[in-house]
Design a protein around this nucleic acid. Sequence first.
DNA 1: TTCTAGATTGCAATACCGTTGCATGCCCTA
DNA 2: TAGGGCATGCAACGGTATTGCAATCTAGAA
Lengths: 137, 137
Amino acid sequence: MKIKELEQLLSARHIKPTAMRLLVLEYLQQQNAAVSLKEAEEAYEKADRITLYRTLKTFEEKGLIHHIDDGSGATKYALCEEGCQCAPEDLHVHFHCNSCQKTFCMPKVAIPAFQLPSRFNLQEINLMAKGICADCF
Amino acid sequence: MKIKELEQLLSARHIKPTAMRLLVLEYLQQQNAAVSLKEAEEAYEKADRITLYRTLKTFEEKGLIHHIDDGSGATKYALCEEGCQCAPEDLHVHFHCNSCQKTFCMPKVAIPAFQLPSRFNLQEINLMAKGICADCF
DNA sequence: TTCTAGATTGCAATACCGTTGCATGCCCTA
DNA sequence: TAGGGCATGCAACGGTATTGCAATCTAGAA
Ligand SMILES: [Mn+2]
Ligand SMILES: [Mn+2]
Ligand SMILES: [Zn+2]
Ligand SMILES: [Zn+2]
């Protein structure tokens, strides 16, 4: 993707397009699985770990990416779908492969409804499915 | 609960009933919310943190308790229901209160079904609901 | 009863991951 | 062109999980 397009993606979310941010955004777009901070770090060895951390934090605050808590111990990050507002209706299932350890967004799989006892006020839902992914099957 | 009964609970799961384990089991039974290692540690100051850690590990391996990854950063533990085999049908929703920070098992709330793309082989599910609990509402 | 092998416990040390403080550098604008 | 604010890089820190090893305990064999 051209620099111009990347810059527009950032600007649309009110993120100043710096060199570092363009690199990270490009990197995220190339992934088909969610990435951890460490993975991003290893992909761009010249980049500083902390800057990378803060870049991801910024991206998340601005709604460009979302984080996934897959139980592996390391938080993963993935680009939001186009038009995502990180609203309840944008929530989706995540899948963690017990074989290759990759974590995938399943944007097509909405989180099914369930009934909590009354007086429990629901605000967020995180549904992690685990098993063997399509590539490892 | 009497020592005898606690010992039987442990023996039924093939866990040798030591003094430490009886204490921890009794402590777990008194809780209405899942507990973290730190909380257990503070409740029994004379107990060693590592021993506590290994006790919980043992309990989990033997199917007496299960752990809950509520996204708070600290793993929580809770007793399994009587007769639980930690099988798919024993899975249930967990609720984390954003106000009091407690995490509850909802053994009555089964995890609803959802459809993954074929070729994704499902093995485990972790459904964390978050919001305001009945006590804080 | 005495001895011994194996399990359990306690203490120390380590591995990660996430997070913050602070100094420096860069860019935009008045 | 000088100043202010944001971005970056380095260092340090805090919390949790985990392992190594030696001391201790326990159950069973002899
Ligand atoms: Mn996702
Ligand atoms: Mn539970
Ligand atoms: Zn896989
Ligand atoms: Zn609460």
